Simulated assay, not measured.
Amino acid sequence: MTGAVPFPRDAINAMLERLRGHPFHGPRLPARVTDAADFAATVPLMRREDLLAELRKPGLGAFACPHAVRMNFSPMGGGLAPILHTAGDLAALTAACRTHLDACGIGPGDVCAVTFGYHLFVAGLFYQTQMETCGVTCLPLGPGEAARTAGLCAEAGVTVLAGNPSFALTLREAGMPPPRVFFAGGEPFTGNRPLYAAVRAAMPDTLLIDSFSLSEVLPVARTVPGGTGVHVFDELVYAEVIDPDSATPLPPGTRGELVLTHLVKEAQPLVRYRTGDLTVLTHTAPLHGRTVNLPRVVFGRTDSMVKARGVKLYPSELRSVLLGVPGVTGGHRLTVRTVDGRDHLTLSVAGTLDDATAEAVRRAFKSQTLVSLDALETVDTLPDGPAIADAR
């Protein structure tokens, strides 16, 4: 389904009411909105730079929160920015995650190994908190020391693993028994076909869960058993997609920049927050209570766009197309020229591609960008330069 995404009017208006006196948001927000169009027209977008500008003020500026019970950090703007949660925030996110863990059949009796980092960053404690709240025994292992970690997982009878896919493969090679459920994060997973296939081969009977979150918006979406892509935790966040250039809201099924709004966050609430991530948003039939879907998760960033044949092309999309392709040994560049009065697209790739792989790259490029390549060439090396070169 690609029909209109439901607008949570009551939750949005309750959020607007709560933030009426907020020193940052209050002056920017209307008292109420009637629908998605009204929300987009009357509520301004905010960027990461807006958040950072406040956090750099004495006492964290408008985002100070004396009732916060947890402070993690995230790399932002060349430094580390604090990420705050209140007790209410932790209760809300664990309640939302509980519905997902229930759908995955996870609960008391399960043992979860958390191999995300715990030092400063948010993921390790995030997974431990939600698991423990649901009665799951947790091993707070963190990343590294694969041989010892694999042995501990075997001894403890681990049934659930949370961590980076690459490290999960290392653990399997070190002798860790395959878990019943694997929560992947920290690197592209379902969008990286070779990596996903390798994990599937290493864990053929494991339920594989992809996830998408930002440190400042946690969680956003996860794979739901029986679905595709990731489904948004829509009791926590309202998701939109906009044209990155004009900031105009886009209809479902159209690729654009993901914009997120916290619905219940107490510490550091974000409203119409531009993530800079490229995605497609659709509306599905209810699946374990979820209806807002990102079928391809996220596949690029809104960086240095070039428009060709009426389509906006983003450099990071090229990385998505070539991720894990065998034979690609170095850089890549898309060159846009004018030939016989029309845009001509040449993708140059450092490395070697056999005919079947080259055709797969052509298909992947068209699927990703909605336009076809005129030429695909391989070269030994590429000189330094932009990922997309506009030579028109």
Rank of each mutant, 00 (worst) to 15 (best):
138 C>D: 07
334 L>A: 05
381 T>P: 05
159 T>W: 12
209 I>H: 02
361 V>N: 14
157 G>H: 02
292 V>S: 07
35 D>S: 09
135 G>N: 11
206 T>Q: 10
186 G>M: 05
102 D>F: 10
18 R>A: 14
109 G>L: 07
39 F>T: 05
205 D>F: 13
29 L>I: 10
19 L>Y: 07
58 P>C: 00
108 P>D: 10
261 T>C: 11
110 D>W: 06
371 V>L: 05
238 Y>I: 06
351 G>I: 00
194 P>L: 02
314 Y>I: 03
93 L>M: 13
24 F>M: 09
90 L>A: 09
161 L>D: 11
142 G>W: 09
335 T>W: 03
10 D>T: 10
259 V>S: 07
247 A>E: 14
22 H>C: 08
197 A>R: 14
302 T>L: 04
238 Y>S: 09
312 K>I: 00
372 S>H: 06
31 A>V: 15
379 V>W: 08
298 V>M: 01
294 L>R: 02
198 A>F: 00
288 H>L: 02
88 G>P: 03
40 A>F: 04
152 L>C: 01
251 P>C: 06
175 G>C: 01
111 V>Y: 08
360 A>V: 00
336 V>I: 12
175 G>K: 01
73 F>E: 08
372 S>E: 15
382 L>M: 12
40 A>L: 11
65 C>A: 12
305 M>V: 13
22 H>W: 04
356 A>Y: 00
387 A>L: 15
188 P>C: 00
372 S>D: 14
243 D>M: 04
223 T>I: 03
203 M>F: 14
334 L>D: 11
158 V>F: 14
73 F>Q: 12
210 D>T: 04
145 E>Y: 07
55 L>P: 01
60 L>N: 03
319 R>S: 14
224 V>M: 11
223 T>M: 04
281 L>I: 11
172 R>M: 01
18 R>L: 10
365 F>D: 11
252 P>N: 06
265 K>E: 04
52 L>R: 13
335 T>K: 12
108 P>F: 11
203 M>L: 06
185 G>I: 00
97 C>D: 12
242 I>A: 11
27 P>G: 12
251 P>S: 12
233 F>Y: 13
391 A>V: 06
143 P>H: 12
67 H>Y: 08
2 T>R: 02
1 M>P: 03
391 A>Q: 14
15 M>A: 15
354 D>A: 11
313 L>A: 06
376 L>N: 10
129 T>G: 06
277 D>N: 05
240 E>R: 06
201 A>R: 13
329 T>C: 01
362 R>V: 00
255 R>E: 08
311 V>G: 01
68 A>M: 14
301 R>F: 09
101 L>V: 03
